[in-house]
């Protein structure tokens, strides 16, 4: 039996009928066309599918789409605004915080959560904050630099993804 799921993703409302077994990550990618959220493993370890669920970082491969009913989600597509990269994205660009780039959307969403919780993290805080994200290229050094740079450019302000900004305007 299918279930109706209404979600707000990156500030936009979506309504779909889904099977209970549909994973949230597949819903985002296949039904909503938001393919920036990647699937890197089948064991909830790699963190490539990290998104924000009502502001909290979660692995979207470990939730069913039906569980997102009524919730507000932010994916990597919701970070840039008005053609401007989010400061975290800009910092990953400037510090070359990626190699192949496959894990990058998950790292950026995990970084958004990390900086929202702790706007001035130490290097150790950042390393701990990324315990749930794997970079197969092992490009961690520049990823950590990118988060430090983002923390500086955001002036210790909380990471505000586009949805939350849109909600504030509404």
């Amino acid at each position: 039996m299918s279930h109706k799921v209404v979600t707000t993703v990156n500030g936009r409302r979506y309504e779909h009928e889904v099977e209970p077994r549909l994973l949230l990550v597949h819903h985002l990618r296949d039904n909503l066309g938001l393919t920036g959220t990647h699937i890197g493993c089948d064991t909830t370890q790699c963190g490539a599918c990290t998104i924000l669920l009502d502001g909290q970082a979660v692995k979207s491969c470990n939730l069913f789409a039906v569980q997102a009913e009524g919730r507000s989600l932010t994916t990597i597509e919701g970070m840039a605004k008005d053609g401007q990269l989010h400061p975290i994205q800009q910092a990953f660009w400037d510090e070359h915080g990626l190699q192949c780039g496959y894990c990058t959307p998950g790292f950026i969403m995990a970084a958004a959560y990390l900086l929202a919780e702790n706007p001035n993290p130490t290097e150790d805080d950042i390393r701990r904050g990324f315990e749930g994200n794997l970079c197969r290229c092992t490009g961690y050094v520049n990823i950590i630099k990118a988060v430090q740079t983002a923390a500086r450019t955001m002036g210790g302000a909380e990471a505000k993804p586009a949805t939350q900004a849109a909600e504030r305007r509404a």
Partner: peptide, 9 residues
Amino acid sequence: IGDNQVRNL
């Protein structure tokens, strides 16, 4: 336990 994402749920 787990990581940030796991601990959130």
